Amino acid sequence: MTQRYAFEALDKTLRDILGSKQEENRGKLFGGMPILLGGNFRQILPVIPKGKRQEVIQSCINISELWKDCQLFTLSRIMRVNEYTADGQLDTRKHLFNKWILDIGDGKVPAKSKEGEDEPTWIQIPEEFIVKSEKTPIEDIVNTIFLDFTQRQDDEEYLRERAILTPRNDDADEINKHMLKRIKGDAMTFKSSDEICKGSTDALEQHQTYPVEFLNKLNFPGVPPHKLKLKIGQPIMLLRNVSPSAGLCNGTRLIITDFQKFVIHARIITGSHIGNMVIIPRIVLTSTQTK
């Protein structure tokens, strides 16, 4: 997701630093230092706010002059969906789904264009990969992925091997609200403490210009809402690197074990620190959304 300009700036910086003692390093890529990049062009590309398609493509690393000197290593196994059962047998349905996902990324699945569109950008999803909706879409997909959730919500292995992915934050919020109602116990509400950064405005009366009630209604990507409802026993996911050495990284999944006014007690259920008890404090989060 990093724009190519960041890599090009790093390349020039390392050439200057490493070339100050050895002149030949000024002519080497990244000053002669090995650099390992990790990413997947099948997934999300660099984010350009309000940018058009050509602007997104121009910001990719493979458009840069650096790309021709990169050695490419390819991984083709999808880690999101485990193709093997508990006894080591290959699950044919999951294997076909993973292959279909890879074919989409490689452009092998034929695309169609809708009326008035110049370029085909739509694909047909096979029937066997679609959850049939009989009641409401959210309830149907929850019942499919989290089968017998009421009886097994305390089973960490059951929770660890399941997840629902959505492309939109609004959909994730609706699914979370639905799941929260199904978790036993009373919910506790944590409220944010919102304020305007004093260095971001010249207004002398910024508290009157931006009242707290207005700030509480704003929602930003990657930042929890003003009112965050949680329950003991609820699985949660970190959105920040709090303490990587303790296993608290962006994407770590945990189970809430207790609450205090300013901290959350939880147990890690993924990664290399499974089972460790941790305390998550309140964290100051700043949105980069300038608008």
Rank of each mutant, 00 (worst) to 15 (best):
E156K: 12
E156Y: 12
E157W: 10
Y158E: 10
L159Q: 11
R160A: 10
R160H: 06
E161A: 14
E161F: 08
R162P: 07
R162Y: 12
R162N: 07
A163E: 07
A163K: 05
A163P: 05
I164D: 00
I164M: 03
L165I: 15
L165H: 03
T166C: 15
P167S: 06
P167I: 03
P167K: 05
N169H: 09
D170M: 02
D171Y: 00
A172Y: 02
A172G: 10
D173S: 09
D173A: 07
E174G: 01
E174H: 08
I175T: 01
I175H: 04
N176S: 03
K177A: 09
H178M: 00
H178D: 01
H178F: 12
L180S: 05
L180V: 00
K181G: 13
K181W: 02
R182F: 01
I183Q: 04
G185I: 03
A187K: 14
A187Y: 07
M188N: 10
T189N: 14
K191E: 14
K191D: 12
S192L: 04
S192R: 12
S193W: 09
S193P: 01
D194C: 07
E195F: 11
K198S: 13
K198E: 13
K198C: 09
G199Q: 05
S200L: 07
T201D: 14
D202S: 15
D202A: 12
D202N: 15
A203S: 15
A203F: 15
A203H: 15
A203K: 14
A203I: 14
A203P: 01
